[in-house]
């Protein structure tokens, strides 16, 4: 066992994957000599060389398009897009080819590849550096979209994503890179994709979230517990596939639910969660399901960002609304 931050857990997973499987390579802007903009591939260029840790030209479509070709020809590319807000030039490759080739060719060709994207706000970054637009990718057939929130999950899910026979978009919560640490196993282990996890068991209300918002939700849980409320906190960990069974099981128990994400509100993934709760568990509900989300606006810059990114206080308030009924 070793105590690692979420960032270190990802580096560890990349190192293990490169070491264990010759088909694995890393490609992205500045992932080689510089070790990545967040230093997550630190030391890997020196260890595995320029053919396996590839500093790509500054061209996101080029990175994803060539990695797609590599995957079709038998490699297991792990690509890094520096920030989710820089992924849009590559969106055409993802929606038009990466997510389609298996279906288009009826399994004759496949593109097993990982697209890593640091995402999310709360760090006071420049414009485009705080995006949380996972709904775009969740709405794109043929790709999985996963979001770890703990070092243990980050390592095990990344290794699983690299092993997955299909393309996986792997979202990394920037805010949690170095703010969470925990003891995790040394060496390889896998965490299945597509399964939610109950982070805190409880009886009164279900809080459903993922990624960086688990941190605010945990704070909200602490406040609510002091107030005598027993919330159950669920980390989805994956939005495609979406583990609706775990959510429904919890809501059937608590009768109340709040969905939290920092993505824009309209057509955010929370809308899907709410829709599926009402399809499956409407008559278990004692109150309308609430959403705590970012707004339909450009993520504000540092000085006004607090108006946008959901906080523990907003989550507590939303839980309060469900308890009023």
């Amino acid at each position: 066992m070793a105590v690692l931050t979420l960032a270190q857990a990802i580096t560890d997973a990349l190192d293990i994957a490169l070491d264990n499987d010759e088909r694995v390579l890393l490609m992205g802007e500045d992932v080689g000599k510089a070790g990545g903009v967040f230093r997550l591939s630190n030391g890997l260029y020196e260890k595995y060389g320029p053919d396996r840790v590839i500093d790509a030209p500054v061209a996101e479509s080029g990175i994803i398009g060539t990695a797609f070709g590599m995957a079709v020809a038998g490699m297991r590319p792990v690509t890094e897009i520096q920030f989710m807000g820089f992924s849009y030039p590559a969106y055409d490759q993802i929606v038009s080819h990466v997510g389609r080739i298996r279906s288009r060719s009826r399994h004759r060709f496949t593109s097993p590849m990982v697209i890593r994207m640091p995402y999310g706000g709360g760090i006071g970054a420049s414009e485009h550096h705080s995006e949380s637009t996972e709904s775009i990718y969740a709405h794109t057939p043929g790709v999985k979209v996963v979001v770890p929130s703990t070092p243990y999950d980050a390592k095990g899910m990344l290794l699983q994503a690299i092993d997955d026979p299909d393309p996986v978009i792997f979202l990394e919560p920037i805010r949690l890179y170095r703010s969470v640490k925990e003891e995790i196993p040394v060496g390889a282990y896998l965490v299945p994709l597509g399964l939610a996890r109950v982070l805190v068991p409880g009886d009164d209300v279900t809080i459903i979230t993922y990624g960086a918002m688990t941190a605010e939700a945990r704070k909200a849980v602490a406040i609510l517990k002091q107030e005598g409320v027993s919330p159950e906190l669920i980390d989805l960990r994956s939005i495609v596939p979406f583990d609706v069974d775990t959510v429904v099981e919890s809501v059937e128990k608590t009768g109340r639910a709040v969905v939290v994400h920092e993505a824009h509100r309209t057509a955010g993934f929370g809308a899907e969660v709410v829709a599926q709760i009402q399809e499956r568990a409407l008559f278990s509900l004692s109150a309308p399901v609430q959403r705590v989300t970012g707004w339909d606006m450009i993520v504000p810059l540092k000085r006004a960002e607090h108006h946008y990114v959901p906080t523990a206080e907003r989550i507590v308030a939303a839980v309060g609304k469900t308890l009023e009924e």
Binding site: S61, G62, T66, G69, M70, V72, A73, M75, H97
Partner: peptide
């Protein structure tokens, strides 16, 4: 590969395919 219907994106695939073959 099956024929590309959208224009242009497929050229990158031929870069990745050849690159992967050399790496292997």
């Amino acid at each position: 590969l099956p024929p590309s219907i959208t224009v242009g994106a497929h050229m990158l695939h031929a870069v990745g395919l050849a690159w992967a073959e050399r790496l292997q």
